[in-house]
Design a binder for these strands. Structure first.
Lengths: 324, 324
DNA sequence: TAAATAGTGTCTATTAGACAGTATGTT
DNA sequence: AACATACTGTCTAATAGACACTATTTA
């Protein structure tokens, strides 16, 4: 076999192999005006020229780890690098690996394996024109086309196996063709009805990232990563409501958060004002030192319990045996 | 900048980049004699010659996806390929992506990014000599050195971020230097007291895989992937006890498993015999069609509740605010 | 018969969630 | 004054786990 021979060679010198490119892509999520947004960049060059894509770029071989590459890409595309306050903001951002995508045919140029990362960030300023992030913008996830099309390989559980997906980005400048989304006509405009189609299989990656985010805030205190250092319980509730796309019971949520040890720590103060149309000042908190939530803040059950009388369930054949 | 120029070039031709090798490694877990085992191969060549490593090999660029490469490696190293019954056995095995590891200095030869997979398998025969899997063997995880040393980069939550880790394997034959573990002196021998050190950062990858496995069987029915098609509730309990390394209450476990919709389905029959020293025949079940467990089978709480009077906890400073 | 375990019943502490009610602050 | 909402109290259903008990099988 030819590949066997190659294997043998590669054990001495992996360079004997056909090359594979490795990129790092970031699903960066934030909350703007109470809605979940994702950071996208507009591709200036083919393939998928003009389409929006996840920020990312090639791993610098021999120079950086995957984590470092992800942090670098995020900083570059948000413009958060250089200044002191930018570094401070970066330090509060949560970055975790999401999964790798590597079907051979996703990038027309060559076989590209993309390692995806998931980021939770507080409300950040718009990427400024004139920087590396010139073509970057925050988009509401509801404005994107996340049709379950691209579902390639994989046969495992929902958020388990990963596959497909690949990318190749223009990792840095190219000052022309700058897109400047305005408050009313840009990607933040809810009136923009035609769903945006993403480049490569980034819709699939985004979907996986959203699934992970929704599950993550159940068991970890990472919902606080969407907020600034000090926050109120209602603000924290808004994070959960936006990520889960569910209305939560204010009273029960409040009591539950405070009952989880190490989730939040009171600051002893309250907000300055009561809000727009008048309400009690809320106490402020900051994140506690817990890394896991015990007990967890489970999502409202809606998968099982919705057996409404209309669709009486296709008659369970012989499910769980309950005595013969 | 040189790298910027490279980025620009790479947007046309990613081959302009310094090459990175991509490997796929598999953390394959199974149960033998009630204990958790992992599949390892002995490296025939440098680096780490003679050390045990996770099975894996280079991704065949342009030919296969990551999932396919992982399945191929698993089949090769277990010897489960070719025959019909082997294919049948493979179809029952659970394979999911675990994470990617890519610090630049883990492989002395070059920058290697390793995509790790996690596999749950039923008790399989020993890899046969004379095959690709000649140097492969199942090792009890308790015999391995999993000291939390290699903890490289990453700053996220326990099972969140991944980093470090890399590999490079001799993907196929090399019939000399075959290790043939016997029942008494091989890796299955509990008397083997000196912990085995793994090659590369495979100890870290294995640790991540074990963490994932322990969490996974809480919310998914994948514990059944460790068993054959038909099994009893006590057998299923043995899986949980081995993976969690915890004794579970037989009665409560039994009732709980049957109360989760879609977890197991009764076959209507029982085991042939009652067991060694006499006990009731157990009813047999097979896996149901649930993909997620509702409610989950949570691990016995032991992280929070163990504040034994001895170490009175470093005096919680001002945890959760409980009224001013 | 003895030993060991499959499987069931029951009780209690904890938790999720529904609901109600009071206090607070802005328009 | 009126409205919206922060926050707390209370009740109920569901669940985890402890414990006890019966039935079953082999040495």
């Amino acid at each position: 076999m030819d590949t066997t021979e190659q294997d043998w060679l590669a054990s001495y010198d992996p360079r004997a192999y056909t090359p594979v490119a490795v990129t790092v892509d970031v699903v960066a999520l934030t909350l703007r005006h109470g809605r979940l947004h994702v950071l996208l960049v507009e591709r200036a060059l083919p393939p998928y020229q003009g389409r929006w894509a996840l920020p990312g770029g090639f791993l610098r071989a021999g120079e950086e780890s995957l984590d470092e590459a992800a942090a670098r890409e995020f900083a570059e595309e948000t413009g958060l690098h250089g200044t002191v306050e930018a570094e401070a903001a970066l330090s509060r951002i949560h970055l975790e690996q999401l999964g790798s995508y590597g079907t051979p045919d996703r990038d027309p140029r060559m076989h590209v394996v993309s390692v995806a990362y998931l980021a939770f960030a507080p409300d950040l300023p718009d990427p400024q024109a004139g920087t590396d992030a010139a073509r970057a913008a925050w988009h509401p996830v509801t404005a994107l086309d996340l049709r379950p099309a691209g579902r390639s390989e994989t046969a495992g559980a929902p958020a388990d196996t990963h596959g497909g997906g690949v990318d190749g980005r223009t990792g840095s400048t190219e000052p022309s063709h700058t897109t400047e989304p305005s408050e009313t006509t840009g990607p933040d405009d809810p009136g923009d009805l035609t769903p945006i189609e993403l480049a490569f299989d980034h819709a699939r990656i985004l979907t996986d990232g959203l699934d992970r985010a929704r599950a993550k805030i159940e068991y970890s205190p990472l919902a606080t990563a969407f907020l600034h250092h000090d926050f109120t319980i209602p603000e924290l509730r808004a994070v959960y409501e936006a990520v889960w796309d569910e209305k939560l019971h204010p009273g029960n949520f409040h009591r539950k958060v405070l009952s989880v040890p190490g989730f939040v720590e009171g600051t002893g103060t309250t907000t300055d004002r009561g809000g727009a149309r008048g309400r009690p000042r809320a106490r402020t908190y900051h994140a506690g030192d817990a890394r896991l939530l015990h007990p967890a803040l489970l999502r409202p059950t809606r998968s099982d319990p919705p057996p409404d009388p209309a669709t009486p369930t296709p008659a369970p054949p012989t499910r769980t045996t309950i005595r013969p």
